Simulated scan of single mutants.
Amino acid sequence: MSTWLLTGGAGYIGAHVLRALRAAGHDAVVLDDLSSGLAERLPDDVHLVRTSLLDPDLPAMLTGLTSRRRLDGVVHLAAKKSVPESVAVPLHYYEENVGGTVALLRAATAAGIGRVLYSSSAAVYGETGADPVGEDFPTLPTSPYGETKLAGEWAVRRHAEAAGLRWCALRYFNVAGAASAALADRGATNLLPLVARAAESGEPLSVFGDDWPTPDGTCLRDYVHVEDLAEAHVAAAQVLLDDDAPSPGVLNVGRNEPTSVLEVVGAVERVRGRPVPYRVAPRRPGDPARVVADATRIADVLGWRASRGIDQMVM
């Protein structure tokens, strides 16, 4: 059994990754400052270290932790993730996402942790055009959030090469769904929770632009179920544990299936049997029109493929 340090493990995605790791026979120590994560998402027997990655005592904390138990690697999910907020306060995002990643890499390496699995984002691609994007597609992010995730990738890759670490970066496309109501996404920016709230409350959903160059005028995204995403982390962790295998590097996590905002609205109406009111609002700064994954490489490298569709995400 391996044990992983899981940063951001009390968050929406982190709690699902924790659940999947444990189901596969691994263990984890969660590091989370609970600024957006929820302690109640964690099982009672999980060790929670409540601290920020920017805490100057982080190196001593991790060294003390590894003196008491073996940590085989880091799964690094902790980050700020709102595109509009990143446009409003870019320096905060650089400090938290890039500064936090650099601080974690230094502290983990000093503590003798030799594997890093980094949570990246399709936001690193920016505007992509009509074709699915592979990992070699140019990275031209259109928001400070995307820039910070790309800079984090660079830091992980370069540090891994210099320090002899094994590494992987998973570029998430749009994550949705939940394993249970207790683990559901409670964020205020992701589309599916907002659509569900509109269906329940009757308050109109804001659809940011209906004049995008897409079939119905709304943005197209590649949605992946959070449980599929969590299983991708387990597959990556298992490859990182095999010291004879090459480091996986950068991998897309998606389904290669574009879904528009209005198609998500339609799926919620179909599955929940109630209308979703919406109003068209101006486009948001930093939003690209279309981002859809070419998920060929992750299937080849990790043997992972998404198995859940959009209807399962909106249940």
Rank of each mutant, 00 (worst) to 15 (best):
M1D: 05
W4L: 08
L5A: 05
L6W: 08
G11D: 11
Y12Q: 09
A15S: 15
A15V: 05
H16I: 13
L18D: 11
R22I: 09
H26Y: 06
V29P: 05
L31I: 00
L31T: 11
D57L: 07
A60Q: 13
L62M: 12
L62Q: 07
L62C: 02
G64C: 07
T66A: 09
R69H: 13
G73S: 04
V75Y: 01
H76Y: 01
L77H: 12
V83Q: 03
E85F: 10
V89I: 13
L91C: 09
L91N: 14
V102Y: 11
A108W: 07
G112W: 10
I113Q: 01
V124Q: 06
A130K: 12
D136A: 14
D136T: 14
F137A: 15
P138W: 09
L140S: 14
P141T: 08
S143M: 06
G146S: 09
G152H: 04
A155G: 03
G164V: 05
L165N: 03
W167A: 06
A169N: 12
R171A: 02
S180F: 07
A181G: 12
A181W: 01
R186H: 09
N190Q: 15
A196E: 14
S201V: 01
F208E: 08
P215T: 07
T218M: 01
V224S: 03
V224D: 02
V224R: 00
V226F: 00
E231Q: 13
V234H: 12
V234K: 12
A236L: 07
R255T: 15
R255M: 08
N256T: 15
S260G: 11
G266S: 00
A267I: 04
A267P: 04
Y278W: 15
Y278S: 10
R290I: 04
R290D: 04
I298G: 00
V301A: 03
L302P: 00
A306Y: 00
D311T: 04
Q312T: 07
M313V: 06
